[in-house]
Amino acid sequence: MFKHFLITRFNLRNPDWTTSKKNKSVLTEEWHENRFELFRDFCFESVAAQTNTNFEWLVYFDITTPEKFKTIIRTLQEKMDNFIPIFIDGMSLFLPSIKSYIEKCPEDYIITSRIDNDDCLGINYIKEIQSHFDKQDFLAVDFIDGYTLQIHPSIKLGKRLDQYNPFISLIEKNINPRTVWSIRHSHWKREKQVVQIKDKRLWASIIHQENKVNEFEGYGEVDLSRFFQNFVISTAWEKKIKENAIPQSKWKLQSTLNFMDSLWDYTFRNIKKAVGVYKIK
């Protein structure tokens, strides 16, 4: 009936991406060390813990990935059957490679979902995406509520409201499928066939020292015990977060401002789409 692909790009060389938000060079030995640590501690653990394993996780690595990290990749592959590393020559081959892989799929429908290599998913993410499948010819599924976790320089965990986010999925008929990576996640605001689903927190963005753009925009009080019932990360980081997370009561002003900003962005984007400011396809 359908085939579900979760798709991640990891370290693909891109002439437009040479530094982190602190102007540190990327794709260096240090960058790889830090990024693989984040990937193993947060992203991989959360995907491996999915309650529904009926999907393939395509993770795109550059052919120039150093051998020591290829060894790590092989180790992860042994731990998870549906973790499929794919090595390509730079960012320009990313979309063609996705289409080349998916075109071999015989199913009538395709679901493609995206996750960045430094973020994580709630255990029911795949299950919830698939629950919205109903033989749609073309429909983007956008769970707009999630969490955001800052792990550097201090630890904060907050709720997040973000439509057209980096965790969006696309259901489509398997006739020359576009896939969810065909446009930037923020550009789904220009698409007509998008359903926004509230009050199901299925994703968590991780804010760390190497983010190119993201900053902590969390708000509200989060019950850590309840959070870790739905999000699986490494044992070491779970312990560290439980012991060191700053209570929301100590960043209440930031929480309030972040909530107001998030609500304004959400409302303003929806107004702009409703009145036709965005060029809807």
Results as ranks from 00 to 15, higher is better:
91 M>W: 10
68 K>H: 04
148 T>C: 13
268 F>M: 10
68 K>S: 13
109 Y>M: 09
199 D>H: 11
1 M>L: 07
68 K>M: 02
192 K>S: 14
122 G>Y: 02
231 F>K: 06
104 K>I: 00
203 W>G: 03
196 Q>F: 12
86 I>Y: 04
218 G>C: 03
268 F>C: 06
130 Q>W: 05
55 F>P: 12
96 P>W: 02
35 R>G: 02
251 W>P: 05
77 Q>S: 15
144 I>S: 09
259 F>L: 14
263 L>I: 13
251 W>K: 05
180 V>E: 09
200 K>T: 08
31 W>K: 05
114 R>T: 07
252 K>Y: 11
281 K>M: 06
194 V>L: 10
69 F>N: 03
194 V>E: 01
154 S>W: 09
11 N>K: 07
178 R>V: 12
266 Y>T: 00
219 Y>I: 11
220 G>I: 03
101 Y>L: 12
212 K>C: 02
126 I>W: 10
143 F>E: 00
114 R>W: 00
161 L>F: 06
51 T>M: 07
136 Q>N: 15
264 W>L: 13
154 S>V: 13
63 I>K: 15
235 T>W: 10
180 V>C: 08
37 E>M: 05
233 I>F: 10
226 R>N: 15
273 K>I: 07
45 E>C: 13
21 K>E: 05
153 P>F: 07
54 N>A: 14
130 Q>T: 01
27 L>G: 02
223 D>A: 07
205 S>K: 10
131 S>T: 10
61 F>G: 08
202 L>K: 07
131 S>G: 04
265 D>M: 11
44 F>V: 05
147 Y>W: 01
235 T>R: 14
266 Y>W: 12
270 N>W: 08
147 Y>A: 09
143 F>R: 08
143 F>W: 07
158 G>W: 08
76 L>I: 06
27 L>R: 12
92 S>F: 11
89 D>E: 13
39 F>V: 01
251 W>H: 15
102 I>G: 04
3 K>N: 14
213 V>F: 14
248 Q>V: 11
31 W>N: 01
24 K>E: 15
97 S>I: 00
108 D>E: 14
211 N>C: 13
230 N>D: 15
256 T>Q: 11
241 I>L: 07
55 F>W: 09
147 Y>E: 00
122 G>E: 06
30 E>W: 03
48 A>T: 04
91 M>F: 12
274 A>W: 00
230 N>S: 14
271 I>E: 04
85 P>C: 02
3 K>C: 04
224 L>M: 04
